[in-house]
Design a protein around this nucleic acid. Structure first.
Lengths: 119, 119
DNA sequence: CAGAATCCGATGCGATACTG
DNA sequence: CAGTATCGCATCGGATTCTG
């Protein structure tokens, strides 16, 4: 949701619902964030574990998405002062609050895929 | 069209879940689709009604998104043989099956926005 | 009224190479 | 191990113009 230079703030009520959803999608939308969050629902994971779990993701995207999720307060980055370096990622309370939502999204998609293959 | 000949039994559920979610987001993701669907939850609407409801959308995007939603079987396009032309859009059964999901997405976003403004 | 067509900048995302 | 930096194509989305 960028641009916001809009001069009209008229129908607030109608936009309200859409705003909430737009906000949600801005946080979990995109190709990788849902997968990252799903993985972390199972508990804390380190960078390389995530990388292997998310088949096909590039390092660039993994880092970018992790940074955004962290900035948005959905995950926590835990750095251990060790050699070799170790960094783990964990859902915040806010992140965990999405569990039902994530599962619903997944469920709906799975059901629909099944229906499509039957039809 | 999904084979699912699992080469990886360990993460099957996680990958499965991610696939479902990716599918869902491919259908309702993007900047406008959620808003369009939300509006149509209230009942059939014609082109211009949608256009006015979705403040800021360009005609190009509205048509594009409507076409995709139609192709994906979430909405129905109803053309009346009249002059001036009249076209209405309506949720399909599949589209209606997203209601809870859409509301959940919106709710979560709204709650989080409120939390953010308190914090 | 309900679009189709075209142009164009912004963003998403992947691939590769390099680093503390 | 856990990143950063840079390149480049693909897609998203906005503005404008034209039409039945």
């Amino acid at each position: 949701m960028r641009k916001q230079s809009s001069t009209n703030t008229r129908n607030k009520t109608a936009i309200d619902a859409h705003c909430g959803m737009a906000h949600t999608l801005s946080l979990i939308g995109g190709r990788w964030k849902p997968g990252i969050l799903m993985r972390l629902l199972g508990g804390r994971l380190r960078y390389n574990e995530l990388r292997k779990a998310l088949v096909g993701i590039s390092e660039r995207m993994l880092v970018l998405q992790l940074r955004e999720l962290e900035k948005d307060g959905l995950i926590t980055r835990i750095v251990y002062a060790e050699v070799p370096p170790r960094v783990e990622y964990e859902l915040t309370k806010d992140g965990h609050s999405m569990q039902k939502l994530l599962e619903s999204l997944s469920d709906w998609g799975v059901k629909r895929l099944n229906r499509a293959s039957n039809a």
